[in-house]
Design a protein around this nucleic acid. Structure first.
Lengths: 340, 340
DNA sequence: CTGAAAGCGCTTACAG
DNA sequence: CTGAAAGCGCTTACAG
């Protein structure tokens, strides 16, 4: 074992000394580009291993003006739907040699702003938006400065079907199912402080799908911080009034347990009294009794594809756009015939 | 509006020109340290704003040898228990001016190794381990090179009670409850490919707690990839055999829905035939019928405290160690008297 | 209070 | 195939 240099600091110069070559040569070996003799390469590699040398990312970035970091902006990390998305970004980025800087906007515009500033200072090569940004103009600015940006909400335009949103097919399928089961009046339930326009877009899609099916849609907002009893009474009022709603559509997966707890507290029987559907799937939705019907998409796959696209663009070899799987409706026990 | 420089690239030199001061002065204003006249400061700040200048993190890091990045190593991002932990790290780091580099080891030693190498190259100032590392020796190496590292599994030694693990109190409380309810034989259920020794440690804790309580503990491993029917039969065999187990303790929150699905498939009635407890809480556990009893700790708070400690150490002002809340046992409907 | 200059650790033309 | 040198964009003593 060779003695470690006393300072402990191992830079390229130190490696060059150890291997008795120039700094340039070490760089060529380490980066893998540039011609080197096999013997030279071997000597350098040995020195690298012996000293435990790791090139400094900041020095490299400064020189090459590529940080090899991609940022991901999460509107709200507390919302579990973003986790598979984050995983997808992670997976691809890591595999392609990029590091991932994660920022959580915490549903707050000021936090988002600070976070974006920090991403800008880090000179991330690319940015993935996991959801709608609170301040789109700031995103535009970054784009103008040359940052590559992709967003989950990038619309997919299918000229044949006129579909411009990944969620439309799943939403339509759900509404169709409900119509066939005799539902004529349903409620879309979201939290009062819904982030951005995601909830609104879903409501729009539902309204659009239901119009031609003869289903009436109304909107209910609940406070997720309230206790189950209070929310239960609110839901109960909608399900048990004179012309009641016969199905509840929950706007996000994160809200579902709250709502189910409230439904339980109000002793509403699903699906006999009222059917239940939520956006977003999980193993808990499957394990729940009755098993919960969902509108879901494979966010992991979508994030992977998006990130692949981003990295392709960064390398100047744009990927052929992988077709995104649209959302599907998965019907389970929580949906049944409308009570007569 | 001033015209943007044609190249679009805005560096400190460009700002200096715009404000007609030296580069050094701009640096002093931007970093906030160093004496400057109010008029100078104002002029520089105006130039900064006008040009949209953001100092380059890599240049700064190179110069100061502080990256202002902290890394977090997640053993498995697919495991939802890590999410609140990640949030806690995020929250504190962001508030203190640090960026967070997230790496997911994907339960794989090779991925972990690569990820750690990358963190080393980024020269992260600190590293938070969200769980046990697959290769502890690698962690030790990083520590030796001067990286500040804190780990969730850092034992808390309470000399008074001899408790050396945050989970011990919750585990003991659970075992005590079960004993009082007449349970004499319980099973600890974990996935076959359990990560590191987290599961083993839990099993140890349970065994330790149960010994003095006269409870028998056995271990059952299941394949989370198997279908509910198969897992159900496996569980059923343990719950309905001659000297049956009267309570199941699920090793992680992620496994709980799988297990509950299997229990449902096998038509085992909880808690009448068998009580059920899991490590890790969520709103779904609360909403589930029967509501699931859990051993839980506030990972968000723990991560926050840990990160605060890390940043304190980085700044050379070690925090007084905030006491970590230990795990608690939250009893809900899924736990009842042992069948006679 | 301000500026000129050195240097952080790399990569990349440019010579040889 | 290899080396010497310039320079990426900052910060920090050092003078003034």
């Amino acid at each position: 074992m060779a003695k470690r240099s006393p300072s402990g600091k191992v830079d390229i110069r130190r490696v060059a000394e150890e291997a008795s070559v120039s700094i340039a040569t070490v760089s060529r070996v380490v980066s893998g580009r540039g011609p080197v003799t096999d013997t030279t390469r071997a000597r350098v590699e040995r020195a690298v291993k012996r000293l435990g040398y790791r090139p400094s990312a900041s020095a490299r970035s400064l020189r090459t003006s590529r940080s090899m970091i991609i940022g991901i902006l999460l509107p709200d990390l507390a919302n579990p739907v973003f986790v598979p998305f984050l995983r997808g970004v992670q997976r691809v980025a890591q595999a392609e040699g990029y590091s991932v800087l994660v920022v959580d906007a915490q549903r707050r515009a000021d936090v988002e702003r600070l976070a974006l500033d920090r991403l800008a200072e880090q000179r991330v090569d690319g940015l993935v938006l996991a959801g709608a940004a609170r301040d789109p103009s700031r995103i535009e600015e970054l784009r103008k400065v040359g940052m590559q940006i992709v967003a989950r909400s990038d619309r997919i335009v299918d000229p044949e079907h006129g579909v411009d949103d990944l969620e439309a097919p799943g939403t339509l399928a759900m509404c169709t199912s409900l119509a066939e089961l005799g539902h004529r009046r349903i409620a879309f339930v979201s939290r009062g402080d819904m982030l951005g326009d995601a909830g609104d877009r879903r409501l729009e899609l539902i309204a659009l799908s239901c119009r031609s099916l003869g289903i009436n849609v109304e909107q209910v907002t609940v406070d997720p911080g309230a206790n189950a009893g209070d929310v239960g009474r609110e839901i109960s009022a909608v399900v048990r009034r004179h012309s009641p709603v016969s199905a509840l559509v929950c706007s996000t997966h994160g809200l579902a347990p709250t709502l189910l707890g409230a439904i339980g507290a109000a002793q509403i029987v699903v699906p006999r009294e009222c059917s239940f559907v939520t956006y977003g799937d999980s193993e808990w939705a499957v394990a729940y009794r009755p098993a919960i019907s969902v509108i879901t998409m494979d966010l992991f796959a979508i994030a992977s594809a998006l990130t692949r696209r981003l990295i392709g663009a960064l390398r100047g070899v744009p990927e052929i756009d992988v077709a995104h799987e649209p959302a599907r409706f998965v019907i389970r026990d929580s949906v049944g015939a409308a009570p007569s």
